[in-house]
Amino acid sequence: MKIMVAIKRVVDYAVKIRVKPDKTGVETQNVKMSMNPFCEIALEEALRIKESGVASEVVAVSMGPAQCVDTLRTGLAMGADRGIHVEATEALYPLSVAKLLRALVEVEKPGLLILGKQAIDDDCNQTGQMVAGLLNWPQGTFASKALDVLVTLTINYEKMEFNLLMLFGLVKVHWQQHRGIHSELQKVVLDKEKQVLTVDREVDGGLETLCLDLPAVITTDLRLNQPRYATLPNIMKAKSKVIKKFTPKDLNVEIKPDFEVVQVTEPPKRKAGVMVSSVDELIDKLKNEAHVI
């Protein structure tokens, strides 16, 4: 199974952003950019699944201006096998990104697509759900516990049926053994292949567990894992990994937003508060000034 991970280049989470004076947006020139923190978690999870032997390859995908290649290199340094950059100069919104992702899924045929639950710049929380809808795949949003991927195989070999429930890596070994032994017969038919994924989702009021048939779309919440750091040797190795380029035109996706940003403003400032010196003063203020207790 191949896993595709979508990663986004955003203003670093620690940067205190500034709204442009002409209200057209937020200042992004000369501002530190990084991989969206939720995307790091998504990539980490894909790498862990690969390391457990269930997946064979992790493909990182990013969309946007030329600088997205830097973000992809970071992903490759973390351990992704190769990258895909969809170069787009115009602003991309979740619907366009979802359409581009669908087109890439049709090219790459991954068994699992993992995204962060939201990007910390536009705070939309839409892309994963939208691409799942476009692909008609099941979705596991806000995943917060390590994903459990199981592969059930029913192998119909002449009249014998083997029901195997095990990790994909092991199944692959068995499968090759069968093929090796009976290679001259060529009658081993993969009758039914059912791959299942269990996901724990963070929902209001608790944790919800779902079981999804693969292929599926997963979006990651904060607590899914702790992303690894790229080591220096891996950063060097990442330089020789392949990043394939596409344009939206190559993928037959037309970018036309159906909404426009009228203006971006600073939120209203709270009026300055007062410092109190004792608990008594605090209770008095809350009671007699603010009237909240």
């Binding site: 203003v11 205190k16 952003i17 709204v19 937020v26 910390i120 710049d121 536009d122 705070d123 909404f259 426009e260 940003v261 009228v262 203006q263 971006v264 403003t265 600073e266 939120p267």
Partner: peptide
């Protein structure tokens, strides 16, 4: 947007 550090008006 941006963790509530800006407000975006969209049409």
């Amino acid at each position: 947007i941006y963790a509530g550090n800006a407000l975006s008006t969209v049409r």
